[in-house]
Design a protein around this nucleic acid. Structure first.
Length: 562
RNA sequence: GAUUCCGUAGCUCAGCUGGUAGAGCAAUACACUUUUAAUGUAUGGGCCCUGGGUUCGAAUCCCAGCGGGAUCACCA
């Protein structure tokens, strides 16, 4: 596994051993006590005050017997001033001439002691009197430069590298850190708000025997000891409701959910949802609660309710507009879906140029119409309410119209941010709804829900009237940080694995001899000139790296490209 | 999954209608005691994504693959 080192990496390794020759440990064990952060020096500047600081050296300007460098810590950057005779007061100038000037590289972690001062140009700096090596960096960081006009040059922009090596992205692109700090603040503001209401933060199973609470394709895994399939949860809704049955008045969970579906700039296979359930409330209450929560988050995290998202200005000031799904569709298509049959809706879809398939029921058709013609229009926060019953199998029937449910979705910037119900707590109605879903799945809808018998049993013991909400945390953070892509708000978004298989000449020959069409393995074997042992090794390597597939069909071994 | 663009030095990118590579920054060496995209001089650094084809000759043209971006489709 030896990989060629670049010239610069070789250079840094040689600096590393030279440091050791000078008796300096490049990776010392001892703690380094820090007194100030870069920003705290600037905000609480006191002429000549002693400081101890640590971080990465990000730039170096050497001018003979004096030098400047920049130290970057978790808070930002501060300029360091090194004077040879102040750093090395005695005869021995090695620390300055050798260590600082030659053996230190950009990206190295150093600790310094010194005093605050301002340069002739007025820049707050530290006059360094003591330098400690804290950790050597063996790979050069991509270093963007910012000129006097604030333009960034040579920025590290390659999206693939940024996501695969997020640690580098974070060191080098300051805006990235901001996004994740805000993400953390969003969570923290929500936790504090829930805490004020006395809601309980809980944890429910990620590995579930029945993937319920939503309609999506799950990831499947297998439990060896029990010899049963288990699913990574697509939602945690049914478990939180069981806790309401158990007597908690308010429970919430920040949950990683997993869905085995496509990936794009708004979908990652694992994503975070905050779900909250509150007993004795309905969706009207939840709407009021949600709008004030969103407003509070905006104020605390962004400092304002008026945020810029792309080209749009969005006001997150409560209250938000409320409109029923029927009125929304009426407004944007001129068509009233009230009481329409499946056929009438299908005709409308065709008229509007929306693709439909035979397995779509009334609910799915209405959802298509809304998604296609209305959703994108709601830029400022809007509650879409009263969804048709077919679309919402876990939601309580509307108090005045039995064809509808007491459900709302919160749309912001044309995207769904939250989804909430007056929860269905009638166990008989719930069983019928599940059975209707089962019928849908028999029609070919692979996403219709499974029936969770234990959940029904829980409802039969009685669940108080409850309202619940799920908020897509990743999308909320995208909104508040003005990011267009979910990958920008996840530290480590899902990527295709890096493939770095070093194929030998023989491996390539074999690979080229095979095609996507299966061929008898023996036929390929005779085409390749090598020993049986070499053949075996190569084929094993190729199949292990999923380049080739070998399989048996009626006692004959076949081989094909994977 | 479809379309489209991209893959060249550590980073950002040039490289025209084919003649085996260039810049800036970074690196190395020397000079320089308040600079700030420090400066000056010199030097080194490339499986031009991989494999095949066309050609006397491919970073460049063609095909396939891998990886990525964008748009669309799929996705309560």
């Amino acid at each position: 596994m030896s990989q060629e080192l670049s010239e610069q990496e070789v250079q840094r390794r040689s600096s590393l051993s030279k440091l050791r020759e000078l008796g300096i440990e490049p990776y010392p064990a001892a703690a380094f006590q820090v007194s100030h952060l870069a920003t705290s020096v600037k905000t609480a500047y006191v002429e000549n005050q002693p400081v101890k600081m640590a971080g990465r050296m990000m730039s170096q300007r050497i001018m003979g017997k004096a030098s400047f460098a920049e130290l970057q810590d978790s808070s930002g950057r501060i300029q360091l001033y090194f004077n040879r005779d102040e750093l090395c007061p005695g005869e021995d100038k090695t620390l300055y001439n050798e260590v600082f000037k030659k053996l230190l590289d950009l990206g190295d972690f150093i600790g310094i002691e010194g005093t605050m001062f301002k340069t002739q140009v007025g820049e707050t700096s530290i006059n360094v009197t003591s330098l400690t090596m804290l950790s050597k960096s063996l790979k050069p960081l991509p270093l963007p430069k910012v000129d006097t006009d604030g333009n960034t040059h040579d920025a590290f922009t390659d999206a693939e590298l940024r996501y695969r090596q997020r640690y580098v992205d974070l060191v080098v692109n300051p805006g990235v850190k901001e996004t994740f700090i805000k993400r953390s603040q969003v969570f923290s503001v929500m936790r504090k708000a829930f805490d004020r209401f006395g809601f309980l933060e809980v944890e429910t199973p990620i590995l579930q025997p029945i993937p319920g609470g939503a309609t999506a394709r799950p990831f499947v895994t297998h439990h060896n000891a029990l010899d049963i399939p288990l699913y990574l949860r697509i939602a945690n809704e049914l478990y939180l409701k069981r806790l309401i049955v158990g007597g908690f008045d308010g429970v919430f969970e920040f949950a990683k959910d997993f869905r085995n579906e496509g990936m794009d700039r708004t979908h990652n296979p694992e994503f975070t949802v905050m779900e909250l359930y509150v007993a004795y409330k309905d969706y009207e209450w939840m709407m009021s609660f949600t709008e004030s929560l969103i407003e509070e988050i905006a104020l605390r995290v962004c400092g304002t309710t008026e945020i810029a998202v792309g080209e749009q200005q969005i006001s997150l000031k409560a209250p938000f507009k409320r409109i029923s799904m029927r009125d929304a569709i009426l407004e944007h298509t001129g068509f009233d879906i009230e009481g329409k049959t499946e056929e009438a809706l299908r005709d409308l879809c065709r008229e509007l140029g929306i693709d439909v398939t035979p397995e779509m029921g009334v609910g799915k058709l209405i959802d298509e119409i809304f998604g296609e013609k209305c959703e994108a229009r709601y830029i400022n926060p809007t509650f879409i309410t009263d969804y048709p019953i077919e679309m919402s199998p876990l939601c309580k029937r509307h108090r005045t119209n039995p064809a509808l449910t007491e459900r709302f979705e919160l749309m912001i910037n044309g995207k769904e941010i939250a989804n909430a119900y007056s929860e269905l707590n009638d166990p008989i109605d719930q069983r019928e709804r599940f059975e209707a879903q089962l019928a849908l799945s028999e029609r070919g809808d692979v996403e219709a829900m499974f029936i969770d018998q234990d959940f029904l049993r829980a409802l039969e013991y009685g669940m108080p009237p409850t309202s619940g909400i799920g908020i897509g945390m990743d999308r909320l953070v995208m909104l508040l940080t003005d990011n267009q892509s979910i990958q920008e708000v996840l530290f480590f978004p899902q990527m295709r694995p890096e493939k770095q298989v070093n194929l030998s000449e023989l491996d390539r020959q074999i690979l080229n001899a095979c095609s996507v069409e299966p061929a008898p393995l023996a036929d390929i074997r005779v085409m390749i000139d090598c020993s049986n042992k070499q053949w075996d090794l190569s084929v094993k390597l190729l199949t292990k790296n999923q380049l080739l597939k070998v399989f048996k069909l009626e006692e004959v071994l076949y081989i094909k490209k994977a």
